[in-house]
Design a protein around this nucleic acid. Structure first.
Lengths: 251, 251
DNA sequence: CACCCGAGTGTATGTCATAAACAGTTTTAG
DNA sequence: CTAAAACTGTTTATGACATACACTCGGGTG
């Protein structure tokens, strides 16, 4: 398995697989296995037992084929993970409401997706996502951004920003909701944290322990909500600063 | 190797290792190997040949010990990766200048760090970082946020947001700078993208191809800069909205 | 001085991704 | 209509890897 530092010249192979319009009219026996079956099995296994349990042998067993049969359909495990991640992402939600509502709904849905399938966060990313589902998520996010009046490059940057925030926050926070409570972590850290060296951290921890205000709100988890809202504030201000004539929704 | 879905009960073990104040006065022979040596070797290997090349055997060989000697100092590869990631992160930069400058400098430094050691992005995160270096980065970021007048929970959320953005953006964009130009990707995608299904994406791609304005600026890469600036706009607006009396820097 | 804890070693096990050689099947070129 | 070519699935094999286990020996502690 490579899983790391791929040269990335296999872009075309990735695309081919992800957009599986199998060219019909091959020669040999008609395949019984399909990429879709394999991907579904992979998702099922990862859902059930986590990414660590996702081996080629396990997939083959799940489907009742020999291990190597998988390789007749997918050239490497890296590619398989890419496909599984795309399938696992599912279709993006329909967004409605105004700019803010739409984007907050998008972020909330993505967050929920990561919560439902945390293994997707472990799939190593070695290029920008290319699968139909992941691109659909991106497209859905770009719509309100463009409609709000952002230029192409700005919308692209904003979309990257939002994707990165949700993904990164999920990566850091997801299992925090696990066994240990947030407080336990704080207590464990308190033992080693030198206030002279980490003054700001100590201050924040103390405030937290004292039960600070806390930023709660509808729809988005607290860790995400504040940041996303500030970002949206900034975006709106930018739009009204650079194009005072608010363009309407596309016809 | 687990590398995935850890139960996370080993929090204390992580802390012990990361903050390596070895308890003196043991019995047997004094250890020759130390955790620091092991971590340094790991970083050296990852720097040279990537995370995929980082095996216990390789580390042992690098240090001239048997493979199993490593396990006398570190209980598992997962923990080793955690330690290596912390060591690899290095010390955060000193920040000066005003709020904006400081935070942009922080983001730029972190970005540069990921560029210098892309393997850190591949180390699976299974809890919030706990090592002295990673916490130092966090502390350095919290300082200007607190100084600007954010409350504890807000500062924490903003810091998480910024960390996530830089990390996530790096993850998606880093190798984009690799072999294929951005344009090649666009061309490859154009072949499969149905404008009916991905209207916004298509529009953005076209604008990009036409050579839109592009958001360039000093210090931060284009992918990051726009988003970070909008976020900072939003933060500043929030601060002046919620506490009109701008608090000065701590004495 | 005897004891034992703990460092470092060698060997062993089970899992994994994947290469290579092979067998049966269907399509197509002659 | 036939034979080769192309393709699917299987079997077997290889080399890496993380890590358990049983050991040897050194040096503080009783």
């Amino acid at each position: 398995m490579v899983t790391q530092d791929s040269t990335g010249a296999d872009l075309e192979r990735s695309l081919e697989l992800l957009w599986a319009g199998r060219s019909r009219g091959r020669r040999g026996p008609r395949p019984q296995l399909t990429v879709a079956q394999i991907a579904d099995a992979a998702v099922r296994i990862a859902d059930a037992d986590g990414l660590a349990a996702l081996s080629m042998q396990r997939i083959a067993a799940e489907l009742g084929y020999s291990t190597m049969a998988i390789y007749k359909h997918i050239p490497s495990k890296d590619l398989l993970l890419e496909v599984a991640a795309d399938v696992g992402a599912g279709r993006p939600p329909e967004l409605d409401g105004d700019f803010r509502q739409a984007i907050r709904a998008w972020a909330g849905a993505l967050w929920a997706g990561f919560q439902a399938r945390p293994w997707i966060l472990r799939v190593p990313l070695d290029h920008t996502p290319l699968g139909p589902n992941q691109l659909a998520w991106l497209d859905r996010l770009l719509r309100p951004l463009l409609a709000a009046g952002l230029a192409g490059a700005e919308a692209r940057a904003a979309a990257l920003h939002l994707t990165a925030v949700v993904r990164g926050t999920a990566q850091i926070s997801l299992d925090m909701a696990g066994p240990r409570s947030d407080g336990e972590l704080a207590r464990a850290l308190a033992g080693v944290l030198d206030p002279k060296e980490y003054p700001a951290l100590t201050a924040v921890h103390e405030a937290e322990a004292a039960g600070g205000p806390g930023y709660e709100q509808k729809g988005l988890p607290a860790e995400l909500g504040f940041g996303v809202d500030r970002f949206l504030d900034g975006l709106e201000a930018w739009v009204s600063r650079t194009s005072p004539v608010r363009p309407g929704r596309a016809p």
